[in-house]
Design a protein around this nucleic acid. Structure first.
Lengths: 233, 233
DNA sequence: CATTATTAATATGTACTACATAATAACTTT
DNA sequence: AAAGTTATTATGTAGTACATATTAATAATG
């Protein structure tokens, strides 16, 4: 018999556990009933009865959903559907020590892409106040002290850029990805840390007086050393 | 007494459950022991003995970690530390129906930022073959059939762009965010669906013969209707 | 002796019971 | 009617028991 096609004829035996299934069912249930954040959810025992599984299983599934921020359980009062913290769950697994090197590299590229694309939002939402604050950070770095300070300042500057976009999700994204960036920069520490031809103060000035296109070009020049370190894959 | 400062003097009573604590302990443990993906982890009963909690609690904590993709449990064989799927966990909560409108808007902006920033990677990794495939997609849309097809094609084109970057994480990111984009575009359906002054075919041609700067300008023109729909907040 | 069958040991998955404890509801007391 | 007391409810934790899949160990067979 043709072994190759065996998997076509033989349906794969489900390896899912009860908890997996219950988790899925609950997700569907929440969606179907179109619960809104804050709504009270059925009690454990009701779910047990409805689903026909042990309380253990239900609790395990609920625990996972809670982990994802989809539900909240106020002790002894019942559960409510929560507003899932999209980035929060992301954050929980984002440990540079555990993440695969390839993905680390990908995330680093993601950062570069993000920062290159910031310009439009930046020019849409910049204010004099914002720019002044950004300038203060840029000026601070002239101390040119120890390396650790420089890195910290680098993060502060770019962080401020995200902040100016007024997009909180974007800002949090940057904060989360920070350790990743830090890790990658330590990886490329062999070549002396360099900031490209355009420094932070230059960028501030462009933001003040220049155009979007100027800023994009400037940001590229600023990040160029990083881009250069990218392989063509 | 000063009620305002009460919370300073009175330490907040911990509301953490045993499972929360065990989860944390396990994370620390994995890190401390510097387990690598694939390494076998202690058995449940060993953890129960070491931690001094019931097996229920341990299982609940393990279940969460498994949900985050940090561990895998091959049935009856034991657990191993897995390579966490960074984006996978993200995906699980990314349901446009549940997500807060503000975050939805933020994510949509994130998309625009991403696509504006793609240019540099694109020009770094484009090949004739890639461009040909992209062109094929762009040509396909001239049918100008029903709206659903147009949307599908829109997604195909932009998806291909991500693909060309050679950054798989980026690509997956786009795939995940797709339903979000779709949701947002249906929100702004009142004004007739318009693609800006630069269409897909134009972009392909710029990618062929133009410069990075041309492409950035072109992409901005292409996405302009979306940008225009953004408020200043 | 090598190969196959059988059995035992192991470890996770599921079910069930029991009780602790916090929050709330119901009830009593004055 | 306000305050205090008790009962109820629902989640959190512990523990036992057993099912089942996988591997290891052992016995049986040619």
């Amino acid at each position: 018999m043709d072994v190759e096609n065996l998997s076509k004829d033989l349906e794969r035996v489900s390896t899912e556990t009860m908890a997996d299934i219950v988790e899925l069912r609950l997700r569907e249930f929440f969606k179907k009933k179109s619960f809104k954040p804050g709504d009270a959810l059925p009690k454990e025992m009701e779910l047990v009865a409805a689903l026909g599984v042990s309380r253990n299983v239900v609790r395990e599934a609920l625990s996972r959903l809670r982990m994802l921020g989809m539900i909240e359980t106020r002790k002894k009062r019942g559960m409510i559907l929560a507003r899932p913290d999209v980035l929060g769950t992301f954050e929980r697994v984002l440990d540079p020590l555990i993440i695969d090197d390839h993905i680390l590299q990908d995330l680093f590229e993601l950062r570069l892409v993000l920062e290159m694309g910031l310009a439009d939002l930046l020019f849409l939402r910049k204010t004099d106040k914002n720019i002044a604050e950004l300038e203060k950070i840029a000026l601070d770095e002239t101390h040119d002290g120890e390396k650790r300070f420089r890195v910290k300042n680098e993060i502060a500057f770019h962080g401020k850029l995200y902040e100016i976009t007024g997009n909180n999700t974007l800002k949090r994204f940057q904060v989360m990805l920070m350790p990743v960036f830090g890790y990658v920069t330590t990886l490329e520490k062999d070549k002396e840390y360099q900031t490209g031809k355009v420094n932070h103060l230059d960028l501030v000035n462009i933001l003040k007086n220049g155009t979007k296109e100027d800023f994009k070009a400037g940001m590229y020049a600023h990040l160029k050393p990083h881009f250069d370190s990218l392989t063509k894959k």
